[in-house]
Each structure stands twice: as C-alpha cells, then as structure tokens.
Computed example of a mutant assay.
Amino acid sequence: MNRRDFLFFSAAASTFPSLAFAAMDYKPGLVQKHLDAGDTVFLDFKADWCSTCAAQERVINALKGENPDYEKNIVFVNVDWDTYSKDALTMFLNIPRRSTLVVLKGEDELGRIVAGTSRGDIKALMDTALKAAMS
C-alpha cells in the first residue's frame, strides 16, 4: 500500500468506523486473533498477476457495494499467494491455489470456492458468512 492510500484509508477508518472491516492484508496471527474474538473471517487467497483473482475481487467489491452489512459484519482478509503460499495457515487449511475464497468462524470452515468467479456462488458464500456473523 502506498503512502497516499494509507493516509486516505486511515482517515476514512477514523471518520467512518463502519469501514473498520474493510479488507486487510494478512499477517501471521491476524486470522486467529479475529477467530478468537468471535469474528467471521472471509479469506481471499490471491495474487496481483492472477486474472481469476481479479475477477473474484470485482464481484466481491460489487457485492460489498450493494450490501454494506457485509463489510460491517465480516472481516475480509487478503492473503498474498506469492508471499504466503507456504504459510502455516495456508497449509492448515489445505489451500490448493490462489483464487481460493474461504469463510471461517471459530474452528469451523463454513465454505470455500476454488477458482470460481460466479456472482451467484460468491454471493452465496458471502451470505453464509453474513448469516454466521449475525448469529
């Protein structure tokens, strides 16, 4: 993230607390911290160069724009495949490749999509996450 984006998002997050669940970048320990806090976590394993990942991101962003409850209630975490493909989290979840979307709550995996870009499938996964977050 460049300095201008950091300053913008920092100001936006302090001005609009509901943006606190905007997608964040993965670091070891981040997911467990949120799971321990009872949050529902939506993981997006992606790479900058991946066209399938870009298609998934467009769908996810469009759905977030249509339903603000997604960002208010779900923790979205971007996992850089090039950096974390061999990370303990990736191995534990048996993530086969970039362009994998996974929803977690507590110790449970609630759903996953591998290399799928269907708006309906991604919406169903996000709705599963939202239902879990609201219960």
Rank of each mutant, 00 (worst) to 15 (best):
D36A: 06
N73V: 11
N61S: 10
P68H: 06
V41M: 09
P96V: 05
F9W: 14
E57I: 03
V103N: 08
R112I: 01
F8E: 15
C53S: 11
L104I: 10
D127Q: 10
A37H: 08
L43C: 13
W81V: 05
L35F: 03
K123G: 00
K123A: 07
A129Q: 13
L130C: 11
S14F: 15
N78C: 01
T83K: 00
G29Q: 09
C53Y: 11
D69I: 02
E71Y: 10
D108R: 09
D25F: 01
P17G: 11
R112A: 04
A124N: 12
I74Y: 00
Q32I: 14
L63I: 02
M24W: 08
I95D: 00
T90Y: 02
L101A: 06
D39N: 14
L43T: 08
V77N: 01
A132W: 01
F21A: 07
S118V: 01
R4Q: 09
A124K: 05
E107P: 06
R3L: 04
K46Q: 14
I113Q: 06
G120Q: 07
D121E: 10
T100W: 04
E71P: 08
D39H: 12
V31L: 05
L110G: 00
D25M: 05
V77S: 04
F76M: 12
A23H: 03
I60M: 11
L104R: 03
S14L: 15
Y70A: 08
A11S: 13
S118Q: 01
E109Y: 01
S14R: 15
D39Q: 13
L43A: 09
A13R: 15
Y26V: 01
T117P: 03
E71G: 14
M126N: 09
M24Y: 09
G116D: 02
M134P: 02
T40A: 08
R58C: 04
K86V: 13
R58T: 11
R58N: 11
D80A: 07
Q56W: 00
N61V: 07
A124G: 03
F9I: 09
C50V: 14
K131N: 14
D36P: 02
D121Q: 11
H34N: 11
E109I: 10
F92C: 11
L89I: 04
L104D: 10
N2G: 04
M126Y: 10
M24P: 05
I95H: 00
D87M: 05
V79W: 03
W49A: 05
I60V: 14
V75A: 13
A12M: 15
F92M: 13
N94R: 11
